[in-house]
Amino acid sequence: MTNLIQEGSKVILYLGYNNLHVIKVKTNEVYQTKFGALKHNDLVGKEFGSKIMCTKGYIHALSVIPELWTLALPHRTQILYMADISLILLELDIKPGSIVIEAGTGSGSLSHSIIRSLRPNGHLYTFEFHELRSTLARNEFEEHGLSQFVTAQHRDVLEKGFEHENIADAVFLDLPAPWNAIEHVMKVLKKSGGRLCTFSPCIEQVQRTCQRLSTNGFEEINTVECLRRVHEFRYQHRSRINFTADQNQEAKIDTHSNKREPNDDDVDENDDEEKTPNKKLKNDSETTAKRQPRETESMLTAIGPLVMPGHTGYLTFAYLKQN
């Protein structure tokens, strides 16, 4: 992958946090963003990561890397997210040279990460029963310069199996009924040992899968769920209450002054506005220097989000050795 944007390059436009768009650079075309028009010509020759001016602001032009692609890709199906993807790569021992089978291809979110991990000498065979989706994914792999690492095929693997025999180090299944593909998996995994991962959103699917894996001699079967919690950055503003007891300690002479009682604030509730503590203290501080306005401290915090993904799916891993 070259570092400069060219005619035909796929570019991810970063407009802001979780606001990403994908375009393919085509001379003289214009793309409308919330920051105004972006001329494709302005992208050509720029380094990935550059700041590109639009008519009413700027964006950043990024290359297609798996994390960003997962956020920006056109959703043709429900996709896998990075917490699951990352764990799948680790647990399936996918590394340079691995031969990996994937079904279905879906939107290709996982495929991109698998390819990154098995380069330069591994290969991904990815199958999809929906013809259009398979074609679209194949085109994307082509556009992203990944064709040499992947074979995307339109095929109903439940009916027809994976075509190959005993080639795979790892198999990943994201199918509605993965248990029906177990025999095909056994055929495609290397005899000397290979790993399997199935992804299922519902626990009933997991139960059926585990049952079938166990009766077919799979070992080290384990099911996990992984949820990523992205924190929100927020400044917390904390005011300190001005305890009069402290002030007395600091300046006991002070008691004679004509300051008002805090607790007669509710005598007339109509002018609450007048009587907010800060206002009052401001007045007080004119007469008695000892009284400080209520201190407010701001502190940066990263706190859990009000809404986060609560469930993506269950990942079931297993190992099979056939001698």
């Binding site: 996990v224 992984c226 949820l227 990523r228 919690r229 992205v230 924190h231 269950y314």
Partner: peptide
């Protein structure tokens, strides 16, 4: 981003 994660085994 700052993130943590939960891992639940079944």
């Amino acid at each position: 981003e700052i993130a943590d994660s939960w891992l639940r085994e079944y």
